[in-house]
């Protein structure tokens, strides 16, 4: 009869995380999952505004966009895509570890996700500083230096620098910047998760925070999936 007693959730160690207004952990985790998905839906629309701006200016200034993308190094973008896919894999794996009660695996995958997220931002930092150093800023402040112009392909170099070049880079900085802020928030959340995982909070009966943060992290990945071709490859 002892195995029957174990299946009941009453008295399980995870119950200290059960809020007073839920009848049981299942109800609580189901509700949290719905909540996080509603929030992610809201995030999609939050980013959609920038995609609208992108679409409008691309439609109005196609030649400008084509010209401007030569300033972006697709290899950096591709590298970051690989980094982010790797971190997503590790994030998904951390959920698996939590579900299975593999505490060591959980800590390792959480840490790996955090490190890869950090690496993404390091690459981004190099991209940003290289551009800003060469006068490629946003809006009216965009004045590319001779040095960076000389690195363009010959056919592009022959063209005059378009008047509204900064518009493209406004959109570039906005889209990657907002995405970068989300990465930063994600890193904060992973630091929090690592602390809690070290404390031993998570296990098969309670892994909602690991799962929710991973879902958020996958959404951040998903947005990059669109940013990469639209900014670097077009």
């Amino acid at each position: 009869m002892s195995h029957l007693a174990q299946t009941g959730t009453a008295g399980a160690p995870e119950d200290r995380f059960l809020a007073h207004h839920f009848p049981d952990m299942t109800a609580q985790s189901q509700t949290s999952k719905l909540g996080i998905w509603l929030f992610l839906g809201s995030e999609v629309l939050f980013f959609s505004g920038l995609f609208v701006a992108y679409g409008v200016y691309r439609a109005n200034h196609y030649a400008l966009f084509h010209y401007a993308h030569h300033f972006l190094d697709w290899r950096m973008g591709a590298l970051n895509t690989v980094v982010l896919v790797g971190s997503s894999l590790s994030a998904a794996w951390s959920v698996r570890c939590a579900q299975l009660g593999d505490r060591r695996g959980l800590r390792i995958t959480l840490l790996l996700t955090l490190l890869l997220a950090g690496m993404f931002l390091v690459v981004k930092y190099f991209e940003y500083s290289h551009k800003l150093h060469n006068g490629i800023a946003w809006g009216a402040a965009c004045h590319p230096s001779e040095e960076i112009l000389s690195t363009l392909p010959a056919s592009v170099r022959a063209l005059p620098v378009p008047k509204d070049l900064g518009t493209f880079f406004s959109i570039y900085y906005l889209m990657t910047g907002l995405h970068g802020i989300h990465v930063l928030v994600g890193m904060g959340l992973y630091v929090w998760l690592i602390r809690r995982a070290t404390r031993g909070d998570f296990g098969p009966g309670y892994f909602v925070p690991v799962d929710s943060v991973a879902l958020y992290w996958h959404l951040v990945d998903m947005i990059w999936i669109f940013l990469f071709p639209l900014l670097y490859l077009i």
Partner: peptide, 27 residues
């Protein structure tokens, strides 16, 4: 998962797509 979660994501993507396409259509 529960299908409703997929409905949320698809609805969000659809609203975003229609937003983009209406405005680009106009522009």
């Amino acid at each position: 998962e529960n299908r409703f979660l997929m409905v949320i994501l698809i609805a969000a993507a659809l609203f975003a797509a229609l937003f983009v396409s209406f405005v680009v259509f106009d522009t």
